[in-house]
Simulated assay, not measured.
Amino acid sequence: MLITTDRLVLRRFRPGDAETLAAYRSKPAVAIYQSWRAPYSVERARYAIETMAAADPEQPGWFQYAVELASRGTHIGDVGVNLNDNLRQAEIGYTIAPEHQGHGYATEAVRAVLDHLFRRGLHKVSAECDARNVASARVLERLGFTREGLLRGHTWIKGEWTDDLIYGLLEEDYFGAAS
């Protein structure tokens, strides 16, 4: 499975991605809003990549795309898609290494995945983010997602209750916005 944009290649994870995956997932600025804790070991990254490599993007469950710069072949992040059992809905998440943030890569990568998902017939894609993660919320809003709710004190993570923002994007809104 390969998705390309002008600047990016979204592909399956490979064993050689373990060190870069561990490096960006170990950064406190990345891990703060995620379920994992920093540091994120290379061994844990290897295991995650084995699991990701076995996943099928056309079947229910999580599939992670490795995001790399097309010009350099540099692995800079990932986009995850959790396809619902009904094959018509999905949840999406994304992570870009801090040194590559601020260049529009998250927006470009997620837009490419959304285009793929909606063209294969999905009805809705959802996303959830920590309410403090303003940059992630901006990416979703830039892509046309609607903020559907705020779940106050919803997630117990890393010793504290956090608020979660809930976003959704319908197929008809995506194609209406894309035209």
Results as ranks from 00 to 15, higher is better:
M1Q: 12
T5M: 13
R7D: 12
L8F: 13
F13W: 14
F13D: 09
R14F: 12
P15G: 12
P15N: 13
P15I: 12
E19M: 11
A23W: 15
A23L: 15
R25N: 14
A31I: 14
I32H: 13
Y33K: 08
Y33I: 10
R37S: 15
A38H: 11
Y40G: 10
Y40S: 11
S41H: 12
Y47K: 15
Y47L: 15
A48W: 15
T51F: 11
M52H: 14
A53K: 15
A54H: 11
A54D: 14
P57K: 08
Q59N: 09
P60S: 13
G61L: 07
W62I: 12
F63R: 04
Y65M: 07
A66P: 01
A70W: 04
G73A: 01
T74F: 01
H75T: 00
I76E: 01
G77T: 00
V81Y: 00
L83C: 01
N84H: 14
L87F: 05
Q89N: 10
A90K: 00
Y94A: 06
Y94R: 01
Y94K: 01
I96Y: 01
I96M: 03
A97Q: 00
A97N: 01
P98V: 03
Q101N: 05
H103Y: 12
T107E: 05
E108Q: 08
E108N: 06
A109M: 06
A109F: 09
A112D: 04
D115M: 10
H116A: 08
H116G: 06
H116P: 00
R120Q: 13
R120D: 03
G121C: 10
H123Q: 10
K124H: 06
K124G: 01
A127Q: 02
S136Q: 01
R142D: 06
R142F: 04
F145E: 02
T146E: 12
E148G: 08
G149P: 07
L150W: 05
H154C: 06
T155Y: 02
T155W: 07
W156D: 07
E160F: 09
E160S: 14
E160C: 09
W161K: 10
D163Q: 09
D164I: 12
L169V: 04
L170K: 03
Y174V: 05
A178I: 07
